[in-house]
Write a protein that binds this DNA or RNA. Structure first.
Length: 345
DNA sequence: AAGTCGGGGCC
DNA sequence: GGCCCAGACTT
């Protein structure tokens, strides 16, 4: 056993490094796409979609020339659809402003849409050998416990302290990209929410292990209470085509997506929906059972579906098959599934 | 610094 | 039913 921490991390990582398929062939484009796909997403949920995406858009140029609707389809069901839009826009910027070569410096990367501190630091450390600490949830858990960092996870104070403590790794013989990836894997399989200190190579260096304070770190801000949302969806249909509306941002959920006409309290889509009928619809909906339960960050959503006989002005008409491709959210997919069940309507 | 934005897996 | 996750962006 080595007697200093960076060497232990390096030998542990050399032995335990995950051989992910997306790591077999590595270039900065693939690393970039991988980081975007895995943001706030578990690897198992994303890896098949990621594989398909890299086969469909193998280069930054092919992505830049690709159709945004095709890009969005690759993200179907994964949430955070703005990351798909940002990624597509970023590819066009890289082609136009960087001769289709993704920059490798942190400063240049950070200016690209959808690339924040974490992704810029990962790409610059792996592909530019910059000694810069990435900070994701895993880094936060590992470093906060190792050094008992007394600041809340997303504060500037925490970032400053973490960067200072991480110097011992970044200034070691370990390549900076490996430092960031090893810290991440450490947090992923050992320093988990309930940490596995008995198998940790670093426990004798760890302040939280010494003081038995693992559950006090990382320090967090108090959680936000979930808000209950009653969402009435109005299903307007002409023959086999259903009417949907583009959420330009006036409706509070799923901005940029196609939605059925909807009412949530005083939010309405389409916004020119006749104000007169709304109160009656809300009254009628009170007697109806909830058709779909869904959760969106800090919200518990109860959806009631009401089939309507006529149609509204504006809006677009699509068949269920078409909507299954055009609607990317799991909520709308749940609704479409209900509409396919003839017993319910 | 806090709020917003999807969704699913896990306990 | 709450917590958490390979975060970025706006306010």
């Amino acid at each position: 056993m080595k007697d200093n921490l960076p060497e232990r991390l390096q030998s542990w990582y050399a032995h335990e490094k995950h051989r992910y398929e997306f790591r077999l062939k590595r270039d900065i484009y693939r690393t970039w796409i991988t980081e975007i796909f895995l943001q706030q997403t578990q690897i198992n949920a994303a890896k098949e979609k990621l594989k398909f995406f890299l086969a469909t858009f193998p280069t930054v140029t092919s992505l830049a020339q690709g159709d945004i609707s095709e890009v969005l389809q690759c993200f179907q069901g994964m949430g955070y659809y703005t990351r798909a839009r940002n990624m597509h826009r970023a590819a066009q910027i890289i082609v136009k402003d960087h001769h289709a070569k993704i920059p490798t410096s942190y400063t240049a990367l950070k200016k690209i849409p959808g690339i924040g501190h974490y992704t810029a630091a990962m790409l610059a450390s792996i592909h530019g050998k910059e000694k810069i600490l990435a900070l994701d949830a895993n880094h936060v858990r590992v470093l906060s416990r190792l050094y008992e960092i007394p600041y809340t996870a997303h504060s500037q104070s925490f970032a400053d302290a973490a960067r200072k403590y991480a110097e011992v790794f970044l200034e070691s013989t370990m390549p900076p990209g490996d430092v960031n990836e090893a810290l991440m894997q450490w947090g992923q399989i050992i320093c988990t929410k309930t940490p596995k200190c008995s198998i940790c190579f670093a426990s004798e260096f760890c302040k939280s292990f010494q003081n038995n304070t693992q559950n006090l770190y990382p320090q967090k801000t108090k959680r936000v209470e979930a808000v209950l949302v009653n969402w009435i969806m109005l299903i307007y249909r002409y023959k086999d085509k259903y009417q949907v509306f583009f959420n330009d941002g006036n409706f509070p959920f799923l901005k940029g997506e196609l939605l059925f006409a909807s009412i949530i309290d005083n939010h309405i889509i389409p916004k020119n929906f006749s104000k007169k009928g709304i109160n009656e619809i809300i009254r009628n909906a009170e007697k109806l059972p909830v058709d779909i339960h869904h959760a969106i960050t800090h919200h518990k959503i109860a959806v009631k579906l009401m089939e309507k006989k006529h149609t509204l002005p504006n809006g677009d008409f699509f068949t269920l098959d078409e909507l299954q491709k055009k609607c990317h959210s799991s909520l709308m997919q749940k609704v479409l599934k209900q509409l396919r069940n003839p017993k319910l309507f």
